[in-house]
Design a binder for these strands. Structure first.
Length: 594
RNA sequence: GAGGGCGUAGCUCAAUUGGUUAGAGCACUGGACUGUCGAUCCAGAGGUUGCGGGUUCGAGCCCCGUCGCCCUCGCCA
């Protein structure tokens, strides 16, 4: 089938040429005599005109409806003055048809690509092939492709090898819940789909590959968020004979290259912030630096008041932190009550607050703060019309996290986040381990193979919580787009870390003996990083919904609404796998009283 | 596992305090129309109000359960 052009390329300079196009009927306007069709393909929309003189084509054109697939041949004509459509790149021309072929009649579609932007996501996912016909979705797919290409070119130039790692892996109990795949050949045994190629890429370093990279699908059977799904794509990399700075430099170079080549935006040198600073100043290990609203420690001032809420938190070795909310004074009582209720889910008791009105503290807990009023206003730099909110409680980390969530919510609702900014940040010096009060043991913050900082090695056992690691996260506009670490390559240090994590030697050998073996036989020092590829694309195309950047995404329950996966399987399939399904019995509910 | 929101025609939505035959726009069908580009005009068809139960003289609306989708907490080394 001959196509001389696509639907986005004809311009007045093509006038007079015989052209042929193919695509979908985006809309039709039948005037009884002349008929107009807006023909759409991946590249754009072109107006096709049918005149009654071409009787055969014209009568067929009368039957055309939304999403019919057609081929046309005709003459490209410059539109007469006043009849151009400035909203179409091809609006200066139209194609007067001599010949029309109906390639495939469409049933009436549940919605048209034009409408898809307004249709429920559920419906869009069910008819994804119609949704994806939208120019916007085509653009996203195209950007995703280009970003992947740029990334591969970049790493190729840097001497990396793209090496595939297995999808059918050994299950490890650490980390996220695994998706399991039963083995037919070994009944009762299971593979796990990879949460990331972490262990394999370390083994690749022991294998002498030196520089590994992979765009790879990862699977985590955990509940989703707006920017998180069970099945996602990582840009995974690992390097031998490197320290933290070299890995960060390579990753930063990639970000710079992608932003430059795809968006035409320069990424400046990316600043650093310690985990401790990030938590204490922004209540997040991925602070959004596009706006201020930093936390201010006002524990000392709070201690001078008689306010029981403040005193109680301080007596419990907690903290009192304040945020100045610019223009927050306009929030109504109803709105502030709602915030106060909402913040309780983060483990603090409520949200004391005051407004600045007429140079004075007003409403809320103002009466308790009279004695510290001037110091408070001065320290926060508060101005007329501002709101000051207090994070109060213990431990301090709980307060930080609650205020961190509040800071984001208020900034969004009060429209304090400037558009068009790219605020990159490296968060470094993460704690190596975190005390898990429920299990009464230390947990890795990153993973058990993360190397502690050399200067903290000596206090590994004595002051475990204070040990920092060679881990680094790359944050963009408050979202974690990448993270990695230098790995432990010394069996000695690895043994000490496992001991602290409560993983005895036997368990360690059982879980990842192959990696420990690999480290024993001459593994080079190595480290790496993984980018959330979907999230990078989200930032580039400007969406907050990760499903927008995935061609065939799954829903919150892991369902594919188009294919209706997951689904029950034939009894014979289960039998072959030596599996039996044991659904939980539904509890019998007592009949309601009459 | 928990909380919140949503579910009415193919699509997007409306429906007064629980009250007549559940409406509108778009799409669809038929007709008119030779320059539109959200074409216009006339006419028509289209409903298990997600599903199941209950309360009531009467339920789209109230109650219980259930299914699906979205957001959040937990979870995500």
């Amino acid at each position: 089938m001959q196509r001389t052009h696509d639907c986005g390329s004809l311009r007045p300079e093509h006038a007079g040429q015989t052209v042929s196009l193919a695509g979908w009927v985006n809309s039709y306007r039948d005037h009884g005599g002349v008929i107009f069709i807006d023909l759409r393909d991946r590249k754009g929309v072109t107006q096709i005109v049918f005149h009654p003189q071409q009787a055969e084509a014209h009568s067929l054109a009368q039957t055309l409806r939304h999403e019919d697939v057609i081929w046309v041949k005709g003459t490209c004509l410059r539109r007469e003055a006043g009849m151009e459509n400035p909203r179409l790149p091809t609006g200066g021309i139209e194609v007067r048809t001599a010949e029309l072929k109906l390639l495939n009649k469409s049933q009436t579609p549940p919605f048209t690509p034009d409408e898809a932007g307004k249709v429920n996501e559920e419906r869009r996912l069910e008819y994804r092939y119609i949704d994806l016909r939208r120019p916007r979705m085509q653009e996203i797919l195209s950007v995703r492709h280009r970003a992947a290409k740029v990334i591969r070119d970049y790493f190729d130039e840097q001497g990396f090898l793209e090496i595939e790692t297995p999808f059918l892996c050994r299950s490890t109990p650490e980390g996220a819940r695994d998706f399991l795949v039963p083995s037919r050949v070994i009944p009762g045994s299971f593979y796990a789909l990879p949460q990331s190629p972490q262990l394999y890429k370390q083994v690749l370093m022991a294998s002498g590959c030196e520089k590994y990279v992979q765009l790879v699908r990862c699977f985590r059977d955990e509940d989703p968020r707006a920017d998180r799904v069970a099945e996602f794509t990582q840009l995974d990399l690992e390097m031998s004979f490197v320290e933290q700075e070299e890995v960060m430099a390579v990753a930063e170079g990639m970000a710079r290259r992608v932003w430059k080549d795809v968006l035409g935006v320069d990424v400046p040198a990316i600043p650093r912030m310690s985990y401790k600073d990030a938590m204490e100043r922004y209540g997040s290990d991925k602070p959004d630096l596009r706006f201020g609203m930093e936390f201010v420690d006002v524990s000392d001032l709070a201690g001078q008041t008689d306010f029981k809420v403040f005193r109680g938190a301080l007596d419990a070795k907690g903290t009192v932190r304040a945020i100045r909310v610019p223009g927050g004074g306009k929030l109504t009582r109803k709105q502030t009550d709602e915030l106060s209720e909402w913040i309780k889910q983060f483990g603090v008791g409520g949200l004391p607050m005051v407004k600045i009105e007429g140079g004075k503290l007003a409403t809320g807990v103002a009466k308790f703060l009279e004695s510290i009023k001037d110091a408070l206003i001065q320290r926060l730099g508060a101005a007329e019309g501002d709101l000051i909110v207090f994070g109060v409680g213990s431990p301090a980390m709980t307060v930080f996290k609650a205020l961190g969530a509040l800071r984001l919510r208020l900034a969004q609702e009060l429209d304090l986040i400037p558009a068009g900014l790219w605020k990159w940040l490296w968060v470094v010096d993460f704690p190596a381990m975190e005390w898990n009060p429920d299990e009464k043991r230390w947990d890795s913050l990153h993973h058990p193979f993360t190397a502690p900082l050399d200067e903290d090695l000596s206090k590994l056992e004595a002051d475990t919580g204070a040990v920092r690691s060679k881990a680094y996260d790359l944050v963009l506009n408050g979202s974690e787009v990448g993270g990695g670490s230098i790995r432990i390559h010394s069996p000695e240090v690895q043994k000490r870390v496992f001991a602290l994590l409560g993983i005895d030697e036997q368990a360690a050998v059982a879980k990842f003996g192959f990696l420990l073996d690999a480290l024993k036989f001459g593994a080079p020092p190595h480290g790496g990083l993984a980018f959330g590829f979907d999230r990078l694309i989200m930032h580039i195309v400007g969406t907050t919904n990760i499903r927008d950047v995935i061609a065939f995404p799954k829903t919150a329950t892991g369902a594919d609404l188009m294919t209706a996966a997951p689904s029950p399987v034939e009894e014979a399939q289960l039998k072959e796998l030596s599996l039996r399904v044991a659904l939980p019995q539904k509890p019998v509910k007592a009949a309601p009283p009459a």
